[in-house]
């Protein structure tokens, strides 16, 4: 469960002037939800995701993850949360370039302090349909394939929460649809998914939509009907 109360984030620009990326955001996302965050460019979507993902800390407000107030956690503690409870999927994939698909998938387990489970990494690659690409270098894979490696990596430590910031933004519609099918499947297994997107078609996969405007949540609406129609079709 994600609970956010009056969250604020102010950045310092290079010239010293402050930018209020988040003005006052409050919301609750329950376990097992599939939520999209939409909004114009520069409204603070990524900022909100980074705070939820413990990559960033809020300037003010409270962020509780599964009941724990993590706003004041140390770097060490936040790293452990990112490692074990959160999986990230980025627009630009963010894989290690001169490394094989399997090694990329294994990466989160290195920071878990346990022995690397290569079989599990390969099983995850098989699950995203890349069994025959396991030993390929990232540079040898297409964008869609790279994003599926990134999803396998996000699953390596079995996190309950997946955060995807415009995961289809760099993909054509076919590859994007594949990614969305995968995320829908993962949601079906009970994972919580928060997804940032510009694309209404992509947003339609989710059950709930948060519209952000000027650093605030402007609209919060369920869209189960739309989703149901799409899945049926």
């Amino acid at each position: 469960m994600i609970e956010i109360e009056h969250l604020q984030k102010t950045y310092q620009r290079g010239d010293g002037t402050p930018v209020m990326a988040l003005q006052d955001v409050s919301c609750v996302i329950a376990d097992g939800e599939f939520v999209t965050i939409r909004g114009a460019s520069g409204t603070g979507k990524s900022t909100l995701m980074n705070i939820i993902g413990c990559l960033d800390t809020p300037t003010a407000g409270i962020y509780r993850l599964s009941g724990e107030d993590v706003s004041g956690y140390s770097d060490q503690q936040r790293s452990q949360i990112r490692n074990q409870r959160i999986g990230f999927i980025f627009q630009s994939f963010n894989l290690l370039a001169r490394t094989t698909a399997t090694e990329n998938v294994e990466l989160p387990s290195l920071y878990r302090g346990e022995a690397v489970d290569r079989d599990k990494a390969r099983a995850l690659l098989a699950r995203v349909g890349l069994a025959d690409r396991a030993d390929h270098f990232i540079s040898e894979l297409s964008g869609g394939e790279q994003q599926r490696v990134a999803i396998a990596r996000a699953l390596m430590n079995d996190p309950p929460l997946l955060l995807a910031d415009e995961p289809t933004g760099n993909l054509d519609s076919a590859a994007g649809a594949q990614i969305m099918e995968l995320l829908t499947e993962l949601h079906g297994e009970g994972r919580t998914i928060v997804l940032v997107t510009h694309d209404e078609e992509v947003a339609a996969y989710a059950r709930r939509e948060l519209l952000i405007r000027d650093g605030r949540i402007a609209t919060d609406r369920a869209q189960s009907t739309l989703h149901a129609v799409r899945s049926a079709g």
Binding site: S79, Q80, N83, F88, F90, N94, L107, Y111, R153
Partner: peptide, 16 residues
């Protein structure tokens, strides 16, 4: 830089 960012995202602390 990107490698460092990736490692941080998947759970590397500053100390790591």
């Amino acid at each position: 830089r990107r490698e460092i960012g990736v490692r941080r995202a998947v759970g590397a602390s500053r100390g790591d």
